[in-house]
């Protein structure tokens, strides 16, 4: 890995957006930031601002109102960026499959890179998911055409 890729992998700043999850996965994401899981070990901080973020963590299935918010946030993140969906309902709708206000999985709204299943996804699973996403980020960063595409 070259130095830029290393830096990208070592400094994933996350933006967390809840699109209608039950809070279960959200509190597990928060738990990741706290002493026991301490993802700042990997350089991760929750920046809460799309313009600063590299990784978008989405929890919950999209509904009609938050889908446009999600699109806006994704749009405002500068490339290269990755999207991780946390939790079963964000992957597919899950237990909310027959709720009238749901659009289903997040991949119906924005492109998703990694799916982390679980109800709620455990902190370990979330870390695994981020590791997976960073691998993809590294691949993209190393391959010139993919990077150009990401930056375009």
């Amino acid at each position: 890995m070259n130095i830029i890729t290393t830096a990208r992998v070592k400094s994933p700043w996350i933006l967390h957006f809840d699109t209608g999850s039950c809070n279960g996965c959200d509190i597990e994401i928060l738990a990741c930031l706290t002493p026991l899981y301490d993802v700042e070990r990997f350089g991760m901080i929750n920046v809460g601002n799309p313009k600063h973020a590299d990784v978008l963590l989405v929890t919950g299935p999209a509904n009609r109102r938050n889908a446009r918010v999600l699109r806006n946030l994704y749009e405002q993140m500068p490339a290269p960026k990755v999207v991780i969906v946390i939790g079963t309902c964000g992957c597919s709708g899950g237990v909310f499959h027959n709720c009238y206000n749901m659009l289903g999985g997040i991949d119906k709204v924005i492109p998703v890179d990694v799916y982390v299943p679980g109800c709620a996804a455990k902190p370990e699973a979330i870390i695994d998911g981020v590791v997976l996403a960073l691998q993809r980020l590294a691949e993209r960063s190393e391959s010139k055409p993919a990077l150009a595409e990401a930056l375009a």
Partner: peptide, 20 residues
Amino acid sequence: VRAVYACGENLAESGDTDFR
């Protein structure tokens, strides 16, 4: 050029800083 951060509720198409 990107719309300003308006907590995700931008209405960028309006060309100003309106929000929903």
